[in-house]
């Protein structure tokens, strides 16, 4: 483990340092937004949005090559696609009388398909896996700066309007009666979810990002019954999972994204098991006490 931390300073391994920093700073957004995703039960929306990112990445790479737009970094495509899909899902869930989950499923699949088509149309080799599962070898200082900017855009409004977001998530009807523009607030929340998903694509990839959004908050939910401590704890857990996963991948020479996911998943399942077992034991004790 000490090896890993000394390597963070090695100039030859600068990608490792930036991946580590993205993990730490990204965790702030992941903790806050992940808590909203779990408590508001919109994990499937986050899943659809994250998969739609492939369409944005594909379109950006395709356009960059076809129209020679060298400035067009795939992350701009990711942000556009994520926001667009979040807004479409938000509008559908508010106004259209459709089955929301069916629409989410459709957007989820279409996003991926469009992305694959764009990438197929691009000449030359494109490393699709790097986007699907993340590839820390490609992480640069630019990615880290982008993460910082997104982090600030996400965290600042959520802290300022914490009470409004909480009220809208808990009881939107009551919030509406207190003069809060609930539809706008919910839409902003979905857009923040979209930006958060983009934030760590380079480290975790678009397929596994859902695990890092929901599992830390799900674990934190077992230890606290208030919103802000849950956010704090899930941010800490998220930072722990990403750092732990990166360190493990450094030592065992395996890809980091699946290691991060497995680390988070095992922690979640263990916590779930321990809590359920302890409840069963408590009940047994109470029953035997009665006898």
């Amino acid at each position: 483990m000490i090896d890993f931390f000394t390597s963070l300073n090695s100039p030859a391994l600068s990608f490792l340092k930036y991946a580590f920093l993205i993990g730490i700073f990204g965790s702030i957004s992941f903790g806050i937004i992940g808590t909203y995703i779990v408590t508001r039960r919109i994990a499937s929306i986050a899943g659809a949005v994250s998969h739609c990112i492939l369409a944005g990445i594909g379109a950006a790479i395709f356009c960059r090559q076809q129209f020679n737009l060298t400035w067009l970094h795939p992350i701009y495509g990711s942000i556009a696609a994520a926001l667009l899909s979040a807004i479409i899902i938000g509008l559908v869930s508010m106004y259209a009388k459709q089955r929301e989950d069916t629409v989410i499923g459709a957007i989820w699949a279409i996003g991926m398909a469009v992305g694959l088509l764009f990438l197929a149309g691009t000449t030359g080799y494109v490393d699709v896996d790097a986007y699907l599962f993340g590839n820390i070898l490609l992480v640069s200082k630019n990615d880290f700066m982008m993460t910082l900017v997104l982090d600030i855009i996400i965290v600042v409004p959520l802290l300022f309007f914490f009470n409004n977001f909480m009220a809208v998530c808990f009881d939107d009807q009551f919030a509406e009666l207190r003069g809060i523009r609930t539809k706008l607030t919910y839409m902003i929340l979905l857009c923040m979810v979209a930006l958060t998903v983009v934030l760590m694509v380079s480290v975790i990839g678009i397929i596994l990002v859902l695990a890092l959004l929901t599992l830390p908050a799900a674990v934190a939910g077992h230890f606290t019954r208030r919103l802000w401590p849950m956010m704090l704890l899930s941010a800490l857990l998220c930072a722990f999972f990403t750092t732990g996963g990166l360190a493990l991948s450094y030592h065992v020479n395996l890809p980091s994204a699946p290691l991060i996911t497995v680390l988070a998943g095992i922690t979640y399942l263990s916590v779930l098991a321990i809590f359920n077992l302890s409840q069963i034991i408590k009940r047994k004790k109470r029953e035997s006490g009665k006898k």
Binding site: M166, F170, F174, R178, R226, L227, M230
Partner: peptide, 13 residues
């Protein structure tokens, strides 16, 4: 996840 005070304060939004 919220406590009783959090709920009641929503009346002051």
């Amino acid at each position: 996840p919220l406590n009783v005070m959090d709920v009641v304060l929503m009346g002051r939004l």
